[in-house]
Structure formats: structure tokens, C-alpha cells
Design a binder for these strands. Structure first.
Lengths: 351, 351
DNA sequence: CTGAAAGCGCTTACAG
DNA sequence: CTGAAAGCGCTTACAG
């Protein structure tokens, strides 16, 4: 620290000066006890005289003493912080995962460092280094798609991969069960009387698109049905694709009675085309999709029946696994978590 | 620390044991120098023999030494961390703001603690206490709407309010300029030849809804025009409202040639109704809206011309102000940041 | 050029 | 019941 002796500088500093943050030493001095006693009194340790404790506590409150967590962490060897390293901040995975994690840790128990690597390995290493330097107790890594991502390898702290699994089976990964999601969609449609079911898929380069298709086919087979149209139309995760695919689907399969769409965006496009063609939803054709993205699913006419991927539950599970690992009970492998069907008017009249 | 001597516990611990994180002491010992010299060598201080420095640096790399930021912060009195206290995690304000802030701080320079108070004052106090305990250097508070929110008062660290301004003018607040946004919409429509412009507003209990309306009226007046339909229809931020309001608008003002919608959701509803009524967009009626929410604005037919509220710029500005305040140069008052027009096909054919 | 010492703010045995 | 002392991991004058 260099001495700042210029008068103007001092004056400027004084204007904006914040009083030094009080320390335990201040509390002790003002309460007339030793630092050790002040510490014990504030932390509810035994062997402190009730009067002494009261005096210390009152003093601490009076000067708004807040213990310095850095010093406490240095002693304890644990910081009560975790890192959340994401590649999907603009997307919609990280945030529900973060909220679920916050819930699981218990409000205020753990603080979360959030960093966005933006799909850039260099930036990821940079953030990782900063997090490790801050001695996080654990790390949750969130990806933007369910395809496997490179493992970060052996770090000084436990890691849980959420949404995008690690490519190393020795790591602990948590993903939504997209196959199960496909089952749910088909089972719901079959249960509500549909038998000629088509599937408009998303981008086939995504594991999620293929896994959902697998689930749909499995469930259809289990119901003694086949996919109407023979094969899934894969395209992109957009309304544009939903409109185009629905056009060609209606041309080739005018008798279909249900369409499963790979995402809510695709379903919004499908609804548009069905309406333009004068096809009644859900009377003539039911529409179901995946993601249950509120803004899309509840704005349409009718509203969309959709499979929710339960990202918050994913976040809670990730936090659970992380706490277990911090306590020395590590788990590994990829665990797929169940999804949830949300029924609305696009499959059931008046729902 | 209690001694754990049970054999089974030791065995279990050993199985999962992580090697103790190396410290500067380890580096010093292995390099055969003092801790002080090791520190100087790694931090690029003068007066270290080149050979010594090389040996220390190599040793540090070999054992993957990462300096403990907690210890450094304790000394420095600064932690290089900031808090981002939000009430809008599920929403779409916080994340762009966070990204802008990350950019402004410079990747890895500052780490961000993200907490969501979920509009709950108790939870907010709880998080605030945790953040202060962790000795953040500054705090950004993000709200869910542009209406003023209660000030947090005088804290031990500088605070910048983003999106939702503080109700105390002594605080530093940054908001998007919704009046300016209204100007932009009108000026664009007028410039492209529209003269009979109506406005379907959002929820009138929102400051943003009223401010946009104010801007629209101001700009219309400046162009020598009035609001077609006489008064703004306020409702809610939904597609449903957009559809309903457009119905009644078309019934009462069949000659209008442009509709400004209070949000992209409302505009999506308006487009639906216009299409059903056989009104061509943008040929007969242009549609412009606010928010520029990609998922909504780019999925429609035609795509939506929309005013972007520039949340990332807001985040960058908030980070700038915070860094200034940390350096002792505080600013105060509410500053409104400009918005940006994104032209697409709903106002200009083929755009 | 190198290292012993003090200190950041706290907690915890340990003596009294 | 209370307090002096050691120590968490680091940095920075200060002596040598």
C-alpha cells in the first residue's frame, strides 16, 4: 500500500470514505472481553457467562458486526460456496437448475458462483481456475444439450454434470430421461384414444431429438402401433420447421389423428398450419410436444400439452449428489431423471 | 477437529480421500526456498534471482498449485467478487444483465455470486447477509419490473440497481428508457409511411407499460399525428390479450395502418388475429412491439419488428458504475439507457 | 537476492 | 468462566 498524502486526494477519499467494516476485535474491545471470548459468545459455545454473552451479542448488533466468512473459511477448510459453470446462460436450462440447486442447498447455506463459458473451452478453463482459486467446495457443470461433453478430469473438488453428461463414466452425470419423455407422450395419446400418431422431430444431430424418437417408437410398439408416416421427420427446433413439416405430413397422411412435436416451438408451427388447413385441434388431431416452455405452451390456441423436463428437479438432484460427494460419498455414471406430462387443450378438449 | 480413529472410517475416508490441496508452503519446501521468496517469485516481484524464480514456477506447475484466493483477499481487503441479487431468475432480465456484467468486469477478473430473492423481502435479507459476510466488493440488484423498489439503504459496499430503480434518489439506478423505446417505434413507423397508428398496451399497473405509451404519444404528437382509436387499450402481457384487443381494434378502426404492441407476446396475438381476418402484414397493417424476445420475435410469420431493451448494455453499465463506486467515484440518481430498434418483416416487406 | 516476522480476521485447544 | 497463543494461507515491509 502506498501512502496517499496529497491533500486533495485525502479530501476526495474522505468524502466517499466508508467506515472500516467492524471486526471481531472491535466487538471484543467495545464489550470489554477478549477476542476468544467474543467469538465463543457469538457462536453459542458453552462456558460463557450469560451476562458476558448478552453484552457481546448486544455490542455486535449495535455495530452491525458481520463475521468475515473468508477468515472462517480459511480455518474451516470449507467455504460453503459452489461453482455453477454453464454454457447455456441465454438458454433455459441453467436457471431452473440453479433454482433447484439453491433450494436443495437450503437458502443461504451455500452461495453459488455462476460463470458462463459460452461454449468456449478456453473461457471454461479460465473460469475453472478462478473457481478453484476461490476454493469452492464443489462444482456443477451445466451443458446446453444432452449430448456428452468432455470430462473436466480429476479436480480438487467433486463435480456433477447436469443436462450435458460427461463422456467419462467415472464422473457423476444427471440428465433428463428423453426416452421416458417419448413414452409419456405416446401413452397419453393412446390413453385418450389416438391410434394414428406421427412424429415431427427436432434437429437430428441432437441426442435429445433421437432419444425422444426412440421413446416414441418403443411406446408405440408396446401399444401394438406403428409410427404414422413410417418415419420421423427430423428438421430443426423452430416454428418454421413445424409449419413446413406439418404441411407435408397432412398431404401424405390426411388420416392421422395425432402429432407429437419434438419441441414446443415445432408444435406452435404445427398448430398454425393445422388451423390454416381447417383441421380442428384436438377434435380431429391432437398435438403434444416436449419442453413445456411456458411462454410458448400457454400462449397458443389451444394451449399445448407438453412434457416438462423438470429442470428444477435436475438441479436439486445435482445439488444432492454434490453434497453427498463433498461428504465423501461419491456416485458415478449417468443417471436419467423422469419427466412429467402437463395436459392442456391441444390433446384434451377443454383441458 | 475431532480425531477419527475408527478403522472403518479411516478405510472409507481413504477410499475417497482427495490429496490435500497444495499450499505455497509446499511449493516453497519442494523448491528449497522460503515462503516469502516463493510468493515473490510467483507474483513476478523484483529482486528474485532468475534461476530461483524458474525453479519455483516449475515446482508450482508440477504440483498444480493454485493460490488460495481467500487468504489473498483477507490481506488485500478486496475479494474480487460481487453479488448479483435478483428477483427475476425465471425471467429474462437477470441473465443478459449478468452476461453484460461479466463482460464489463473482464473475464475472470471478478466472480459473481448469484442469488434469487424471488420477490421475498425476507429471503432478500438472508442473501444480503450471506453476501456481506463473504465480503463482496459491490452489489448489483436486479428487479423484475421498472417500477421503483425499496432501497437497501446504506451498506458496507456500493450498490447499483438495475432494471428496477431504487426509490431513494441517493442510490445509483439504471433502467431501460421505455419512453425512448416508444419514440423509436413511432419514428420507424412514420418513416415507413404509416399515419394511422394504434397502440395495444400491456398491463397498465406496470411502469414500463405507461412509459412506452408516453413515448408513443410524444412521438406521434411530434409528427403531427394522434393515436388512432383515441386511447391506448391496456390489458395484460399475453398473446390472449393481443388477440382480443386486435379484434376490437379492427372492429372500431378498420382503416388503421399500424399497431404498436406493448410486448412481443401481445404482438404474436395481434398477428394471429390479423391473419384470421385476412389482413396482410405489413402491406395493409404494420406491427411493431417491444422486448425483442428472440423466441417469439423470430418464430412468427412475418417476423416481428421489435424494440430491444439492451439488457446486456444495462449489465455492462451497471458493472461500470459499480467499479467506479468501488474506486470511490460514486454516482447517483436514475439513469435511463437507450433502446434499439430491430427491423423485421412485420413492418417492412421482405426485411 | 533471500528469509524471518508481522499481520489479515477468525476459531479452537489449552492454561489459568 | 476467561484469555493468551497458535494457526488457516498468503503478502509485504524490513533486516540481513
Amino acid at each position: 500500500m502506498d501512502a496517499r498524502t496529497s491533500e486533495t486526494e485525502d479530501a476526495a477519499a474522505a468524502q466517499h470514505a466508508r467506515p472500516r467494516t467492524p471486526t471481531l476485535k472491535d466487538v471484543a474491545r467495545l464489550a470489554g472481553v477478549s477476542i476468544a471470548t467474543a467469538s465463543k459468545a457469538l457462536n453459542g459455545r458453552d462456558n460463557v457467562h450469560p451476562d458476558t454473552r448478552r453484552r457481546v451479542v448486544e455490542t455486535a448488533e449495535r455495530i452491525s458486526f458481520t463475521p468475515n466468512s473468508l477468515a472462517q473459511s480459511l480455518l474451516a477448510g470449507q467455504t460453503g460456496t459452489v461453482g455453477l459453470l454453464t454454457n447455456d446462460l441465454e438458454g433455459r436450462f441453467s436457471i431452473p437448475v440453479l433454482m433447484g440447486a439453491e433450494d436443495a442447498f437450503g437458502a443461504g447455506k451455500m452461495s453459488v458462483f455462476l460463470c458462463d463459458a459460452r461454449e468456449d473451452a478456453i473461457r471454461e478453463q479460465y473460469h475453472l481456475h478462478a473457481l478453484l482459486g476461490r476454493r469452492i467446495d464443489g462444482l456443477i457443470v451445466v451443458g446446453s444439450r444432452t449430448d456428452p461433453r468432455p470430462s473436466l478430469g480429476d479436480l480438487a473438488v467433486p463435480v456433477v454434470y447436469a443436462y450435458a453428461p460427461s463422456d467419462d463414466p467415472a464422473d457423476c452425470s444427471l440428465v433428463p430421461d428423453n426416452v421416458h419423455a417419448g413414452h409419456l407422450a405416446v401413452e397419453h395419446l393412446v390413453a385418450t384414444g389416438r391410434t394414428r400418431i406421427a412424429h415431427i422431430g427436432g434437429d437430428r444431430t441432437y441426442d435429445a431429438a433421437r432419444a425422444r424418437d426412440t421413446g416414441i417408437r418403443e411406446a408405440l410398439a408396446a401399444a401394438g402401433l406403428g409410427l404414422t408416416g413410417g418415419e420421423t421427420l427430423f428438421g430443426s427446433w423452430s416454428e418454421q420447421w413445424g409449419r413446413a413439416a406439418t404441411q407435408s405430413l397432412l398431404d401424405r397422411q390426411p388420416d392421422l389423428d395425432a402429432i407429437i412435436c419434438g419441441s414446443d416451438q415445432i408444435a406452435r408451427g404445427a398448430l398454425d398450419t393445422l388451423r390454416e388447413r381447417g383441421v380442428q385441434v384436438p377434435r380431429q388431431v391432437a398435438v403434444a410436444s416436449f419442453d413445456n416452455w411456458q411462454i410458448l405452451a400457454t400462449g397458443s390456441r389451444p394451449q399445448l400439452t407438453s412434457i416438462d423436463m423438470c429442470f428444477e428437479a435436475l438441479g436439486r438432484a445435482a445439488a444432492d449428489r454434490l453434497v453427498q460427494a463433498i461428504d465423501g460419498r461419491r456416485t458415478h455414471g449417468v443417471e436419467a431423471l423422469p419427466c412429467r406430462l402437463e395436459v392442456r387443450g391441444s390433446t384434451v378438449e377443454g383441458a
